[in-house]
Simulated scan of single mutants.
Amino acid sequence: MQAFAGTSFDSLDSYALTELPVPEPGPGQVRLRVAATALGYVDGLMAQGRYQIKPPLPYVPGGEIAGVLEAVGAGVSTLAVGDRVVTWQLGGGMADCVVVDAADVDGVPGDLPLPVAAAMLVDYQTAHFTLFERGRLTATDRVLVLGAAGGVGAAAVALAARAGAFVIAAAGADDKRQAARALGAQATVDYRQPDWREALKACAPGGAVDVVVDPVGGDAFEPAFRSLAKDGRHLVLGFAGGAIGRLPANLALLKNADLLGVDVRHFLATQPERARQVRGSLFRRVRDGVLPPPGMTRFTLAQAADALRATLSRERRGKVVVVPQGGVADTGRLA
C-alpha cells in the first residue's frame, strides 16, 4: 500500500509517499480501506514535531479517518467487512489503509458521503461539546465565535444558530464572513481591525455577549473576554492565532465570568457512550439536511505535503480532506 510517511520531524521534506506492507488486524482490530482523511491544525503541528504529543517514527499523519472495512480480526463480532465507518486516531490516515481497534470505530449512515463524515467527525463533535457541555448554551444567549471560518468555528456557528442563539461570527476576510452568514450568523465582525470590539458592541443585542467560542487566542483573547456580559462564559479551544492570550485575573471577578478550557479528548475518554451518541446524532442531522455539511478543500494523497501545509494557513477555505487516488468509491448524496 502507499503511505505518506516521515522519518523525522525536521520538516515536511522528511515525508514521502512510500510503499509499505498492508497491515493485518490483530485480535479486536479492524482494517479500513481509507476513503478520506480530514486534517486539522493539530495535524500540521504534529507532522512537524511542534505539538505537545510526539508520535513514534516513522510517522504517517492524519487522524480523522473514514473508510470501508476490508478485514476484521479475531473476536470482532459487531462489525463486518463492507461496513462504512469513521475513527479518530493520532495518525495513520494518509495511507491506502489503516488498522485500528474495533472499539474506536463508529458506523456512518448510508446516505452520508465518507469525505463529509471525515470532515465533520472532530470539528462538529468539538463544537457541540464546547457549546452544550461546557458552555451551557441556551436559546437566549448571544454567542461570539472567533475564527468563524475554521472547521470548529464554522460548526459552532451552525450549531449555535440552530439552537436559537444570536450568533456573531468573527473572521478576517469578507468572503469568510459571508460564509458564516450563510451558516446562520446574524452578524459579523472583522477582528483584524483595531476597533473590532466597538463593532461587536454595535451589533450585539445589549452591547455584550454571553458566550465566546475561542479557538484563536492571541490578540483577540482579552478583548473578547472584556466583551462578556455578567455571568458570561469564555471557552478556550486552542491558539490558532499563534500566541497564548493573557488575561488580568480581576476581569473574571468584575464580570462574574467563567474562563473554561475545552478538552474534547477528555470527554471522549470519560464519557465514551455519550460522545458516541452525539456523533451519531450529528451525522444524522447533516444527512437529513438539518445541519449543513462542512466546507472542504480536497487533496489527493499525492498532494499530501500541500494538504498539511494548508492546515497551518490562515487562507484555507473549509476543512482539508485527503482522498487516496484509486481509493474507495462513495456514492453518498452530500458530496
Results as ranks from 00 to 15, higher is better:
Gln2Ile: 11
Ala5His: 12
Leu17Phe: 10
Leu17Trp: 02
Gly28Tyr: 00
Gln29Pro: 06
Leu32Glu: 01
Arg33Asn: 14
Arg33Trp: 08
Asp43Thr: 13
Gly44Glu: 10
Met46Arg: 08
Tyr51Asn: 15
Gln52Ser: 12
Pro56Asn: 08
Tyr59Pro: 13
Ala71Thr: 10
Gly75Ile: 07
Gly75Pro: 06
Thr78Asp: 15
Arg84His: 02
Ala95Gly: 08
Asp96Ala: 14
Cys97Ala: 15
Ala103Ser: 10
Asp104Arg: 15
Val108Tyr: 00
Pro109Asn: 04
Val116Gln: 05
Ala119Met: 05
Leu121Tyr: 09
Phe132Trp: 02
Gly135Phe: 03
Arg136Lys: 11
Thr138Cys: 06
Ala154Thr: 12
Leu159Pro: 06
Gly164Pro: 12
Ile168Pro: 14
Ala169Arg: 04
Arg177Ile: 04
Ala179Val: 07
Arg181Asn: 09
Leu183Tyr: 04
Ala185Val: 10
Gln186Leu: 14
Thr188Cys: 14
Thr188Arg: 05
Gln193Val: 06
Ala199Trp: 03
Leu200Met: 12
Leu200Gly: 14
Leu200Tyr: 04
Lys201Cys: 10
Gly206Phe: 12
Ala208Phe: 12
Val209Asp: 04
Phe221Pro: 10
Glu222Lys: 08
Ala224Asp: 01
Ala229Asn: 15
His234Tyr: 13
Leu235Ile: 13
Leu237Ser: 01
Leu237Phe: 02
Gly238Ile: 14
Gly238Tyr: 06
Pro248Lys: 00
Leu260Met: 03
Asp263Phe: 15
Ala269Lys: 09
Arg276Asn: 06
Gly280Phe: 01
Leu282Ser: 06
Arg284Glu: 09
Gly289Trp: 00
Pro292Asp: 03
Gly295Asp: 12
Gly295Lys: 11
Asp306Tyr: 00
Leu308Cys: 05
Ala310Tyr: 08
Ala310Asp: 13
Ser313Phe: 03
Ser313Pro: 01
Ser313Ile: 01
Glu315Asn: 13
Val322Arg: 11
Val323Ser: 01
Gly327Thr: 04
Arg333Pro: 07
Leu334Ser: 05
